[in-house]
Design a protein around this nucleic acid. Structure first.
Lengths: 341, 341
DNA sequence: CTGAAAGCGCTTACAG
DNA sequence: CTGAAAGCGCTTACAG
């Protein structure tokens, strides 16, 4: 007869099994496994041996019920491809330490009913806390829940100043890009912003304009040009600059897609990058930065760090130490051949 | 005095609170909420009212402990950007029905110790089942666990035929691409495969070659060209074709990146797409397909469907109905301007 | 149709 | 240092 590991009667070993094998009470077994002081070294060893022998994995549902807490948090994201929530998830795991936390992950596809239903489910699981991640820098409504678990917003801040939000510092993103270009001696800098009305575009432009102003400069044309986040718009905008015979020696684009579009047109028009025109993108999205010609210097949004900080703030809140307000994580610049040949 | 929702004493309402408010026993309250027959309509209504009033969310940890099952599954992925696991996750949610399932999500960054530690944590949470998703079509080692929960592999199949694996049918991907090109009257078709030795590249090429053979044709040059998955290689390969004055009227690329690279070169060399050369990619990755010029016809890997089927097989296995072996989900072709002008 | 009681697998005061 | 007992919040036979 074959031993089918999936057969009916099989059940995972319990603490009672461990205790029996070790010849102690469940209470003692529990203490030994949880590393309490009050257990003698011999007993501790016996219990650990037994646990190992049985491949015991404590039932965290029971543990949670009894102890009131488990290392479980929920993550709700509106992002549909993981480009934002994945790094945030990784950062949160970094903060907790390897295997120290488990996360219930729900994607809402950006719709509120789905968010509500996931929220309800997560609260049912009695998560210790919640990270809500968004895929735009625009602020979003506060999660409506009279729940008692702490909530931290990541990347997309909550509109409510009562909430704790951790976001990329998009202002610094713009500033960083310009400072880099200035340091390379560029002074006629074009600003290609993304979608008008988006916080990300607005903040990046503000940072860029501020940095230019400090150097006594303005963006070429006096203002940033707004359009879309796409490569197509990047192409159109760059073509337009050339057609109008605008004088410029650098472009800062508020997205990597825009930048890649611009690079394609510069290349087609035989403008040498970075010699004649240096280009900086934003987002550090490898699908864009590593495939463009030349490879694209870009601003990294530090989403993983956002995740790390979000988790830290969440853990603090779980200990009763909330820090309401918006916290900004500085961006970084990743230099590549589009600025430093 | 302000009411701080996060104050110490607060605790979520329990079934006992609901029962008390409704004036019934917890047993009855439980039955009413779970939709059991044996409860009178009036009682049922009273209980539901009470639950609503208290915003009661049943503690699923307790429920799981008592009932032995909760709608919780674990998902372990090796993918670092969510490009594979996100669609699979969505598909699994589709299969379960809105809010009917919660998933513990762990990313392993492709390393085994991390996978082990996540696995251990998930087993501790007594997930009802596990979906292991990979980001390549290469088969992967079976998860080593004497655990009793059913496991289904998605996209990357397990090496063991004892396991249940759901994968994209990469053979059909190649076949589909070729049939599309043949239907457009193309006969001199170049095959640009990806990395040699990768199952995805190999299977797609096999499907393509088979479809060509059925039409009495061979790939131009007699064989597929292997290289890398990248745009850079796509460019090199296309440039090479042109340099050697190869005669061809279509290219099937085993990745969208390769295809985009090829398109860039065709455009630069003034070859008209799709008129002179039709191009098909594979992966249907929007960052590539929608930004290329012209937009790229591509094979969709149906990852969401893979997730849906994986979840269905998992649910079946949870009911004791395992179906060992590899199940192939057919791919689809998404026509765009690179083939149908 | 309703409820008292046992039990799911842990943890944690509390005695000893 | 160890263990008996109560309890976490549910569900489920089993009586009534």
């Amino acid at each position: 007869m074959e031993l089918d590991p999936h057969h009916q009667g099989a059940r995972p070993p319990t603490l009672e099994d461990v205790a029996r094998l070790a010849g102690v009470s469940v209470a003692t077994a529990s203490k030994a496994l949880n590393g309490r002081e009050e257990v003698s070294p011999v007993t501790r060893a016996r219990v650990h041996d037994a646990a190992e022998k049985l491949l015991f994995a404590p039932n965290s549902r029971a543990r949670g019920l009894a102890a009131g807490q488990t290392g479980v948090i929920g993550m709700i994201t509106s992002d549909t491809d993981g480009r934002y929530s994945f790094p945030v998830l990784m950062g949160a795991e970094d903060a907790a330490g390897q295997g120290m936390i488990s996360v219930f992950f729900s994607e809402t596809r950006g719709d509120t009913p789905r968010e509500q239903s996931h929220l309800h489910a997560l609260l049912g699981h009695r998560v210790d806390g919640l990270i809500v991640v968004g895929d735009t820098a625009d602020s979003r409504p506060s999660v409506t829940s009279r729940s008692l678990v702490p909530i931290v917003y990541a990347y997309a801040p909550s509109v409510s100043p009562e909430d704790t939000s951790i976001v990329s510092d998009n202002f610094s993103a713009g500033r960083l890009a310009i400072e880099h270009l200035l340091s390379l001696g560029r002074t006629r800098i074009v600003l290609l912003a993304g979608e008008r009305g988006r916080a990300a575009a607005q903040d990046r432009v503000k940072g860029a304009v501020a940095a230019l102003a400090e150097a006594g400069l303005h963006p070429v044309g006096g203002n940033a040009a707004f359009g879309a986040w796409s490569e197509a718009w990047g192409r159109d905008a760059a073509a337009d600059l050339i057609t109008r015979k605008t004088a410029f020696d650098a472009i800062f684009c508020c997205s990597d897609q825009i930048a890649r579009g611009a690079l394609d047109v510069l290349r087609a028009r035989r403008l040498s990058v970075p010699k004649e025109v240096a280009v900086v993108g934003c987002g550090n999205w490898s699908a864009m930065t590593l495939n463009s010609r030349p490879r694209l210097t870009s601003i990294d949004l530090q989403l993983r760090e956002v995740g790390r900080v979000a988790a830290q703030r969440l853990f603090a809140a779980m200990r009763g130490q909330r820090q309401p307000g918006v916290e900004y994580v500085p961006c970084t610049l990743v230099p590549r051949e589009s600025t430093v040949g």
